[in-house]
């Protein structure tokens, strides 16, 4: 087995509410790589992330997920988090009574200190929100920054970013790009870089800031295309997912 494969998904099938949403999904992310996932609404992108993270509602019925060469299907959500998988949610829930600064400190574990939390918050332009309850009353773009702030605190080896740029204005887009690059250690040389990412995007705007190696198109629960992300984006823009559907046949 190739231990450089940080994440290795094989022939995965996932059921939600008794219905099979993902059919046989396979993909591999090597250490240091960033991949992007395209696909129309409802195609199963979020489902794939939830299954990787281990949310019980997303039931794996076939196939395997290996992380750092280890089968993680039997692990709980928090065990997977502690192994090094981080997830920025598309629509995170409000948690009343828990403050953003508390959750950031929790994510930092042993490294937490008031200064450290403040430093990260400054980077994410979230200082004024630290005393807010998690996601309570945050705008769409603020929610995205809050998610990335938490992930930066967690320092996961694999970051699953579910639409990190949707609802973000043009100015903040650059900031989101910076935060993702930091999260993925993009300043490190490719050789020896450990941190990896899998990013879901509809518009591909994020690709103007973050370099990605491979793109996939997910359609009706199947990966129908794999290749250069910008090329895939171009095709979708020009011809829509209908073109991808042809490939699926």
């Amino acid at each position: 087995m190739d231990t450089e494969n940080l994440l290795e998904i094989k022939e995965l099938a996932v059921e939600v509410g008794g219905k099979e949403i993902l059919h046989h999904v396979s993909l591999t992310v090597k250490a240091g790589e960033t991949h992007v996932l395209f696909g129309p609404n409802g195609s199963g992108k979020t489902t794939l992330f939830m299954a990787i993270m281990g949310l019980p509602k997303y039931r794996v019925t076939r196939g395997s997920i290996l992380f750092k060469g280890r089968d993680i299907l039997g692990l709980s959500i928090d065990e997977r988090a502690r192994l090094g998988i981080g997830l920025a949610l598309q629509k995170p829930p409000v948690v009343r009574g828990v403050k953003i600064k508390d959750i950031v400190a929790t994510c930092m574990k042993g490294r937490a200190s008031e200064e450290a939390v403040m430093r990260l918050a400054e980077k994410a332009n979230m200082v004024e929100f630290l005393d807010r309850e998690v996601n309570y009353g945050l705008s769409g773009g603020e929610t995205k920054r809050s998610e990335l702030l938490q992930l930066l605190a967690q320092e996961p080896e694999l970051a699953l970013l579910d639409e990190p740029e949707s609802g973000v204005d043009l100015v903040n887009m650059a900031l989101i790009g910076d935060l993702i690059n930091e999260l993925l250690h993009k300043e490190h040389p490719i050789r020896g870089r450990k941190h990896s990412g899998l990013i879901i995007t509809h518009t591909g705007h994020i690709l103007e800031y973050v370099r990605a190696r491979t793109g996939y198109v997910l359609l009706d629960g199947r990966i129908v295309c794999e290749g250069d992300p910008l090329e895939i984006l171009e095709t979708i823009k020009r011809k829509g997912y209908e073109e991808c559907r042809k490939c699926a046949m």
């Binding site: 993270m53 949310l55 988090a81 981080g86 995170p92 948690v95 828990v98 929790t106």
Partner: peptide
């Protein structure tokens, strides 16, 4: 909400 905090470890 519980799962969300578990996602954070």
């Amino acid at each position: 909400e519980i799962e969300y905090l578990m996602i954070r470890g």
